Amino acid sequence: MHCGYFDRGVCRSCTRMGTPYGIQLEAKLANARTLLAAWPDAEWLSPMASRPDAFRNKAKMVVGGTPDAPTLGILDAAQHGVDLTGCGILTPGLRFAFYPIKSFITLARIAPYDVPTRRGELKHVLLTESAAGELMLRFVLRSTEALSRVQKHLPSLLTALPQLAVVTANLLPEHKAVLEGAEEIRLSGNETLEMRLGDRVLHLRPASFFQTNTEIAKGLYLQARDWIDQAGAKSILDLYCGVGGFALHVAAPGRRVHGIELSAPAVESARLSATEAGLTDVTFSVGDATAFVAAEVPDAIIVNPPRRGLGDKLCQTLESSAAGTIIYSSCNAATLAKDLGAMPAYGPTVFRLFDMFPQTDHYEVMVLLQRRQATRPKNT
């Protein structure tokens, strides 16, 4: 894939842009195998490749320019807006939506936020596309100053983009380098964006986390399901469960699954998905994954932590959990290696790389761990 923005030096976010995709994938696999070389006996499955372009299902666009000529993209070194609405790694549905959104900004006279002067209202446009082509649009505003105009002219945007399923305004009054604030105001549509993945539907609320590559996310969930089936697990604990992607996909008759997640809205979404699917043995609770205490020893534990990894405390908890199987999905092979080293009771048996982020050096890697002990303590 080649990108005009990259070639002109306008945007260099995709550090591997222009490198043939096969070479990118080989380099990622070599990097992962080097970082995880301490476990040479583990099997490496063939990596799951992505399409190299049009794979990204969400756009986090900084707004610049003026109400008459807004830009959606990034800021340059002088903090001026750089328009990236033709970005080739974004899905066609996202790219198609940008022109109507920019026209709406002009119509509603929403002043883009100017970082150097700290004036203006519209900081970011956050856009997510579901597998079915529906959109969730979030306007990140400095204040409510433009809110009445947004509401007044919103019908015109809904007419131009009938695929808008969720529209909100997020308030970020502070001047700091974050994407969104704590307050979300629903403007139109549903409370959630439905993300259908095969026979499961995940409900995404405005602040919910979901993987940026829909097809690769589906591959992760199905790989976990396959490993859980092979292990014959009847009880599964899913830590950092988010909106329930892993928990909902490994669910099966006669199998109990419980997910733990710190975000209450994400748990609410996961519960809704489980209810709609009729999964009565899949439950979720709000809690800190690093501080969980299992009521009984589960057959398997799934962990999907942020880039910083599990940390010493959770590694110690898992080390003493006596679960027969652990599935660890990681977006940082360096912290994964550190965590695996802190859990010597578990041996990695299978690794697989998932190319979630083409055109960059980043990737996901998932590992199947089996407890080395021949027997486990019985539940008490």
Rank of each mutant, 00 (worst) to 15 (best):
E121L: 05
F104K: 00
G88N: 11
K58N: 08
K102M: 10
V125P: 00
I105Q: 07
L72H: 05
R95Q: 03
K60L: 15
M61Q: 12
R109E: 13
H80Y: 11
M61F: 09
F98G: 01
K123N: 08
R51G: 10
E43Q: 15
T71P: 09
V82Y: 09
P112I: 03
P100F: 02
N57R: 11
C87Q: 05
P40I: 03
T34L: 12
M61G: 13
P47Q: 04
G120K: 02
A54L: 12
L84D: 02
W39D: 07
V82D: 08
M61D: 03
G65W: 00
A97M: 14
A111T: 14
A59S: 08
D76S: 06
L75T: 06
P47A: 05
A49Q: 10
C87W: 04
Y113M: 05
A59T: 06
L90M: 12
Y99G: 13
L126G: 03
L72G: 03
R118L: 10
D41E: 09
S103C: 14
G86V: 14
Q79V: 10
L107A: 10
V82F: 07
I101D: 00
E121S: 08
P100I: 01
R118E: 13
A111S: 15
F55K: 01
K60G: 15
G93R: 12
F104S: 00
R95A: 02
I101L: 07
A97H: 08
N57C: 15
A111N: 14
V63I: 07
G81L: 02
E43P: 11
R119N: 12
P70C: 05
G86F: 12
L45R: 13
K58E: 15
H124W: 09
A42Y: 07
L94R: 00
T91L: 11
S46C: 14
P67R: 09
V62R: 04
R118D: 15
T34A: 10
A111L: 13
P116A: 07
L84E: 04
T34I: 07
L45Q: 12
F55V: 04
T71E: 06
F55E: 00
G65S: 01
G120F: 04
